[in-house]
Design a binder for these strands. Structure first.
Lengths: 120, 120
DNA sequence: CTAAATGCAAACTATTTGCAACGAT
DNA sequence: ATCGTTGCAAATAGTTTGCATTTAG
């Protein structure tokens, strides 16, 4: 595990998650001024491949990177803002319905965030 | 509803879904040789906005466009291939857990497709 | 007649790649 | 010495935008 990989993984696990590559890059550059975007992308890909972080694709915005610990997401249909939620685990249900072989799942629940609901 | 909008929406609802903008563009060009990508994107955005199709973001590949009718997806963790599944509807559960306000949800179940499982 | 939709080219954003230099085994 | 990692620049992929032209109500 290289210096950058460690720093990036810490950053993602320490933050609220949901950081874009750009945000990670900017944050990291505070302490590591020489780092470039390509390196951040390389590391993010490696960390995802190795299962240390997870990638979150949200329509309309760049990919986000999140802690691996299982949780679900509430996504505002209007502005795309994300928040974490912990819902009942579905794995057993899914295994039963699909007959096994499941690796993981990703559940996004769409709603209108308070801000967007108010500005209707 | 314009000509293109109708054709595109039909295409998506007739197909197995999961078409990328590029695929839709190419397919459409068979019968509408003058159409350009920008028009396809414009129409896809409008159709999504109006709730006539849904956009599906799959990490690592361009957005896909799908029929609106509720269903879930099985996604190969390795090659990203998609297939439809019909799982028990979670809406009531989610409403109960979250206290209402849900618009919809998106459930992706990751697995290894037969092809990728074999080539391990 | 007007407003919206289209074609076209250019712009933009997110991400990847090739390659030389560097750093840690 | 070797192999993976980095910095850098350029390339690519996907998508959007501005604008003049066409189309449909």
């Amino acid at each position: 595990m290289t210096r950058y990989a460690r720093l990036i993984s810490e950053l993602i696990n320490r933050s609220d998650g949901h950081m874009t590559a750009e945000q990670i890059f900017l944050e990291l550059k505070n302490t590591e001024p020489k780092v470039v975007q390509a390196t951040v992308y390389n590391n993010l890909n490696a960390l995802c491949r190795d299962g240390l972080i997870r990638r979150l694709s949200v329509e309309g915005s760049p990919d986000r990177y999140d802690k691996i610990q299982k949780h679900d997401h509430l996504v505002c249909k209007k502005c795309g803002s994300l928040s974490d939620i912990s819902l009942n685990d579905l794995t057993d249900d899914l295994e039963r319905q699909l007959g096994g072989g499941i690796i993981s799942y990703d559940l996004k629940v769409f709603y209108l965030c308070p801000k967007c609901r108010d500005s209707q």
